[in-house]
Simulated assay, not measured.
Amino acid sequence: MTNDSAQTEQCTPTGPATCTAHPWLWADNCLEPPVTERLWSGKWLWFPPVSLLDAAWDTVRAATQNGLLGYRSKAATLINTRPGSDDSRRPICVYTHDWRDIEDVRRVLTALRGLGIVDVLLYKTDADTTRGQYGRAASTYKALPGRHDVSIPRRTELLLEHHHTAGRNACRAAGEGIS
């Protein structure tokens, strides 16, 4: 059992709205092997009010563990705060393997909506988090309240086009190198 899983077990009886032992509670998809490579991973972010955090986390945690969402999810606890953030809300994150896989990103969004989550949802790459990019401008994708469609900002369209072009060029170069 990893430290992340141990954190889940220690605080689960109290839930994230009252846990003060760890900044995050984690849940893993029990139907998938653990992910070690996170180069392209990202997550849907939901910011429920603290008053609803435990119930929201119970729903997302169970759906994650049952393989209905991404490979992992986490909920911020009461001790997880950032300067300038809204202390009346805490993030719940639902991870996908590859932010470039728009079909999987949409699948997880549809599953979240199916759980009854109607609020605005933002999607962010783990690379952006590592670089310290926060706020709505850091969003790779966005889902408006109650909507099942993914809004793709221009910044993301350019990144996706760059990745597709690089992939095509690599395939072309590999094909030319084979005689």
Rank of each mutant, 00 (worst) to 15 (best):
E176S: 14
S151H: 14
I152L: 05
G116Q: 02
E9C: 09
S139L: 03
A56F: 03
Q65N: 01
A27R: 06
R61Q: 05
Y95T: 02
L144T: 10
A174M: 12
T12K: 15
C171H: 14
V35Q: 06
R131K: 15
L69T: 00
S139W: 06
L52R: 15
T130S: 10
P16W: 12
A6Y: 10
Y95K: 06
G177H: 14
L52I: 05
T130C: 07
G15V: 08
W24F: 11
T156F: 09
T110G: 08
A6S: 12
P153E: 00
L158D: 09
V105M: 04
E37I: 09
W99V: 15
I79T: 02
A166L: 13
R106Y: 03
H22P: 02
T156R: 15
A127C: 07
G167P: 05
P13M: 15
A6H: 13
L69C: 01
I79Y: 02
E32L: 15
G84R: 07
T96D: 05
P153S: 01
G84K: 07
L45Y: 08
T59N: 06
L68A: 05
V120D: 12
E9H: 11
G114A: 02
T96H: 03
T2V: 06
W57L: 07
A173Q: 15
E176W: 14
D104M: 11
G42P: 03
T77N: 07
G116R: 01
P34I: 03
H148G: 03
D128K: 12
E157F: 10
G146E: 11
Y95C: 05
S5F: 11
L158K: 12
G135I: 06
L45I: 12
L69Y: 00
E103I: 02
V120E: 15
D149S: 14
S41M: 10
P23M: 04
N3W: 12
H163D: 15
S5D: 13
S88K: 09
D87S: 07
T64Y: 06
A63D: 00
D104L: 09
G135K: 12
D4G: 05
V35C: 04
R172V: 09
Y71W: 07
W57D: 03
E176V: 11
D98A: 06
T81Y: 08
C11V: 11
D58Q: 04
H163W: 15
S179N: 13
L159K: 13
T77W: 07
G177C: 13
D87G: 04
E32A: 12
A55Y: 08
L112Y: 01
A138T: 01
L52G: 07
L159Y: 14
Y141T: 05
E161D: 08
L39F: 03
N169W: 14
L68C: 04
T140A: 08
L160I: 10
G42R: 05
A17N: 11
R131T: 07
Y71A: 02
T64P: 03
E161Q: 11
T59V: 07
R107C: 01
D54P: 00
T96E: 05
Q10H: 13
